[in-house]
């Protein structure tokens, strides 16, 4: 290991090793934290403590299952993209983000001329008709401030992994 520098908000080498050991998933054994501890040579208590700390400071969002939308019947995953007046995009972003069928809502840069859209709202539903219904409800909310929108349907997951750190040994 070349460096022990703090990676900004304080993950150290031991945290890195925990992250590296769990980024593919938690071991499916009765005592998973003991298993991780054994793997990287520290106690289960230390693992648990460090996971708690990383949860608290947001380095870990949550520990849990990531469902595959398609398998759950949410097959009409539509990424709706909107061209909204720059002055009002924040105001409307906040409103759209609270809609219960919108799972993610972000402001992103435009790329003229090919890509005029500055607001992305992910709509999950069981059918495309349902997605379109929801998108037109959003269009109604937006009224004149939105000049155009599109819905991009996903047709295939090409890759889906968690975060990948490279091996601590390579650092």
């Amino acid at each position: 290991m070349k460096t022990t520098k703090k990676n900004n908000e304080g993950i150290d080498e031991i945290d890195r090793r925990i992250i590296f050991a769990t980024q593919k998933g938690l071991p499916l054994v009765e005592r998973p934290f003991d298993a991780i501890g054994k793997q990287i040579g520290i106690s289960a208590n230390e693992i648990k403590y460090r996971l708690e700390v990383m949860l608290e400071n947001g380095i870990i969002r949550r520990i849990g299952a990531v469902p595959n939308h398609y398998h759950l019947g949410y097959v009409a995953n539509g990424m709706s993209v909107w061209d909204i007046d720059d002055e009002t995009v924040d105001e409307f972003g906040e409103i759209i983000g609270t809609l219960d069928y919108v799972s993610h809502c972000y402001k992103r840069p435009r790329h003229f001329p090919a890509w005029p859209y500055n607001l992305f709202a992910m709509i999950h539903a069981k059918t495309r008709a349902e997605v379109e219904e929801k998108a037109s409800a959003i269009a109604t909310i937006l009224g004149d401030v939105c000049s155009t929108y599109e819905i991009l349907y996903s047709t295939r997951i090409l890759k889906k992994t968690g975060l990948r750190l490279c091996s601590p040994q390579k650092k």
Partner: peptide, 25 residues
């Protein structure tokens, strides 16, 4: 554990474990 293993195997779950926020790191 057996059910979780099957759900991961069948692809119903893409993963199970800590979800990291890389920006925070």
């Amino acid at each position: 554990i057996e059910r979780l293993d099957n759900l991961l195997e069948s692809g119903a779950l893409t993963r199970f474990g800590p979800l990291f926020n890389s920006q925070r790191m």
